[in-house]
Simulated assay, not measured.
Amino acid sequence: MSLKPLTLWTLRGHAGTPNPWKVLMILEELKVPYELKLVDLADLKKEPYESLNPNGRVPTLEDPNTGITIWESGAILEYLVDTYDKQHTISFTAGSKEYYESKQWLHYQVSGQGPYFGQAAWFTVYHPEKVPSAVDRYVNEIRRVLGVLNRSLQDKVYLVGGKYSYADAAFVPWFEVAALFWSSEMDLEKSFPHVNSWLNRIKARPVIVKTIDDNLKARAAAAAAEGK
């Protein structure tokens, strides 16, 4: 039976927004049909979008095949692999050790990497006042997160079960954002070599290459439009 396309909501003109981007990667990996719907920043906390996502953020996913609407990017990834990865190509058998370890790493991404990298970006770029102590705090937290990953990856090719999974992919978008602002501070190749090798393996995957390339093109188009 053919699937109806899922709907992924993301921000208009904010191509670099990392959380919808990681959902895109998993949709592409699983070859699940989807369409994008764009919402303006000013409309996130208004109807009709607020009825879909009372938190007023992106992403939100609507699945007409199941009637489920779900928000929070980590929950969306779990939903997608549970629903559309029955062969466990990028996930693991329910109840297995690897099943719970992959959840562990996804939760670390959404509670650790995402917030700390996001706050570092906010205080580096968007906060109206310069607060060096805040920038230092969150850039140091980036280094701490990298240290956790580096120790965990020293004898591993991927985070869980010796294979690429959705848990690996979830980390990529915020690394792309971090590379724009703190490449010298991070210095992955020198200071976090296991993270560097792992990230390069993930980014060599055709789906990840495509998603990064599409995002860069969309970001360039958004920047050009804002410059008019």
Rank of each mutant, 00 (worst) to 15 (best):
L188T: 10
A169I: 02
I208H: 03
V160F: 04
M186V: 14
E176N: 13
D187H: 10
N215I: 05
P193E: 12
W182V: 14
L180G: 09
V177W: 06
K156I: 02
K190M: 07
R151I: 00
N200C: 11
R205I: 03
R205Y: 12
S184Q: 10
L180E: 15
W182G: 08
D214V: 01
W174F: 14
W182T: 12
D213C: 02
V160C: 11
Y158G: 11
F171Y: 11
Y166W: 12
L199P: 09
L159F: 08
S165Y: 04
G162D: 05
D187V: 11
D155Q: 14
S197V: 15
Y158S: 08
V172T: 01
S165G: 13
K156S: 06
S184T: 15
R151Y: 10
L199V: 09
G162L: 06
A178R: 07
V195L: 08
Q154K: 13
A218F: 05
N215G: 13
E176W: 15
S191G: 08
D214G: 11
D155T: 08
W198Q: 11
D187A: 14
M186G: 08
S152L: 00
K203W: 05
A179R: 05
T211Y: 02
S184D: 15
I202R: 10
D213M: 11
V172L: 07
V207R: 00
G161Y: 07
S191T: 07
P206L: 00
T211S: 02
T211W: 02
D155M: 08
L216V: 05
Y166I: 09
K210Q: 01
S152Y: 12
A179P: 04
P173G: 04
L159N: 12
Y166P: 01
Y158M: 08
E185D: 07
Y166L: 00
P193D: 11
N200F: 00
F171S: 10
Y164L: 14
K190A: 14
V172Q: 02
V172M: 03
H194V: 06
A169N: 03
K203M: 08
T211A: 01
P206V: 00
W174I: 11
A179V: 06
Y166M: 01
A179Q: 14
V209N: 01
K190V: 06
E185S: 13
L180I: 12
P206G: 06
P173C: 11
D187C: 07
V172F: 05
V207N: 06
K217S: 08
K163D: 07
P173T: 13
W182E: 03
R151G: 12
A167T: 09
D213W: 00
F181I: 08
G161D: 04
K156N: 07
F171M: 11
A178L: 10
V177Q: 03
F175T: 11
E176T: 15
Q154S: 14
L153S: 09
F181S: 12
Q154P: 00
G161A: 08
N200L: 10
A178M: 12
L180W: 12
D214M: 04
H194Y: 12
R201F: 11
V207T: 05
K217Q: 09
K217Y: 10
K217V: 15
R201S: 14
K217G: 05
A167E: 04
Y164D: 03
E189D: 15
Y164V: 05
P173A: 09
I202E: 03
N196G: 07
H194L: 01
Y158F: 15
I208G: 01
K217M: 06
D168H: 06
R205A: 07
I212K: 10
